[in-house]
Simulated scan of single mutants.
Amino acid sequence: MNLENKLVVITGVSSGIGLATAKAALEKGATVAGWGRRAAPLDHPNFFFVEVDVRKQDAVERAQLQTIEKAGKPISVLVNNAGLGKQGLFDEQSVEDWHLMFDTNVHGLFYCTRAVLPDMKKQEEGHIVNIVSLAGLNGVEKASGYCATKFAVRGMSQALYKEVREFGVKVTCIYPGSVNTNFFSDFDNATAPENMMQPEDIASTILHALQSPPNYHHVDIEVRPLQPKGKPQRPK
């Protein structure tokens, strides 16, 4: 897709991968609507912010209408980036945290995707990018709830792309390993070392998938830091 003058919606736009993707899309000439609870520190003539809590269906539907009215064109791209994780052993995970993760990572993604799909199918062009995690491919101890949400997104996405591919709509899942964002602030004893991937790295992958030829579809993309512990010290 040529992103020039296309309307791109990015959830969780205030920082990290969402903010980096917004900047990258703007550089390609897109109009970007950032959806989130906190405004993004971004000043650009082709960017506007829509305050929305993706966990609430009615708020998402209002945001979709406000976005189209503000931009004066239909949504061509949705990047489902909003998400969170809470650490906990399975039998110690609080019910509140379990529901918070599902409401954000699964239900929020469902509400946003459901809101934009009809117009994408009508215009026979669209691309939905879901930021998943390697935790959607492999279980991680002390993160069963988070893994459950990401496995759910993976299954939902793989079913959805088979439903909408004949309408010219793509669905891509990106599975990042460790990325240097504030995600790890909710995990005990976790740090964000310099050898993690950067948000800009993931944004470049998203843009690569978005700009692929119309009949070329990235379904699943797994990305990791090449040397997560840094370059090894070899004896001289």
Results as ranks from 00 to 15, higher is better:
residue 111 Y to F: 15
residue 21 T to W: 14
residue 64 Q to W: 13
residue 5 N to F: 09
residue 177 G to H: 08
residue 154 R to Y: 06
residue 191 T to W: 07
residue 190 A to H: 12
residue 164 V to T: 03
residue 61 E to H: 12
residue 144 S to A: 14
residue 164 V to Y: 12
residue 184 F to T: 13
residue 79 V to D: 13
residue 13 V to T: 09
residue 113 T to D: 06
residue 229 K to Q: 13
residue 199 P to S: 12
residue 204 S to K: 08
residue 146 Y to M: 03
residue 201 D to M: 01
residue 8 V to P: 01
residue 97 D to N: 10
residue 184 F to Y: 15
residue 24 A to S: 08
residue 38 R to V: 11
residue 161 Y to L: 14
residue 4 E to K: 15
residue 184 F to P: 07
residue 107 H to K: 13
residue 65 L to D: 09
residue 194 E to D: 13
residue 168 G to F: 00
residue 21 T to S: 15
residue 49 F to G: 00
residue 30 A to L: 02
residue 227 Q to V: 10
residue 116 V to R: 00
residue 187 F to Q: 05
residue 183 F to H: 00
residue 232 P to M: 03
residue 146 Y to E: 09
residue 108 G to M: 05
residue 217 H to C: 12
residue 6 K to Q: 13
residue 39 A to D: 11
residue 73 K to T: 14
residue 115 A to H: 07
residue 36 G to D: 00
residue 183 F to G: 07
residue 72 G to W: 02
residue 196 M to K: 11
residue 73 K to I: 06
residue 64 Q to T: 09
residue 149 T to V: 02
residue 59 A to Y: 02
residue 98 W to G: 04
residue 154 R to W: 07
residue 173 C to G: 09
residue 222 E to S: 08
residue 39 A to Y: 05
residue 30 A to W: 07
residue 145 G to N: 02
residue 132 V to S: 14
residue 92 E to N: 11
residue 41 P to A: 06
residue 20 A to L: 10
residue 51 E to M: 07
residue 23 K to C: 07
residue 151 F to V: 09
residue 192 A to K: 13
residue 215 N to W: 14
residue 202 I to M: 05
residue 224 R to A: 11
residue 33 A to C: 11
residue 24 A to L: 14
residue 57 Q to R: 15
residue 222 E to V: 05
residue 160 L to M: 12
residue 44 H to F: 01
residue 109 L to K: 00
residue 4 E to D: 10
residue 163 E to C: 04
residue 22 A to P: 06
residue 207 L to F: 04
residue 24 A to W: 09
residue 48 F to M: 06
residue 236 K to V: 12
residue 5 N to L: 01
residue 162 K to P: 03
residue 208 H to W: 13
residue 100 L to H: 10
residue 76 S to Q: 10
residue 202 I to N: 00
residue 121 K to C: 03
residue 155 G to M: 02
residue 90 F to E: 11
residue 210 L to Q: 07
residue 208 H to T: 02
residue 231 K to D: 08
residue 37 R to F: 04
residue 54 V to E: 11
residue 197 M to S: 04
residue 79 V to T: 02
residue 204 S to F: 08
residue 154 R to F: 07
residue 148 A to V: 02
residue 72 G to I: 03
residue 124 E to K: 15
residue 46 N to Y: 02
residue 100 L to N: 13
residue 26 L to V: 01
residue 227 Q to K: 13
residue 77 V to Y: 01
residue 136 G to N: 11
residue 34 G to R: 05
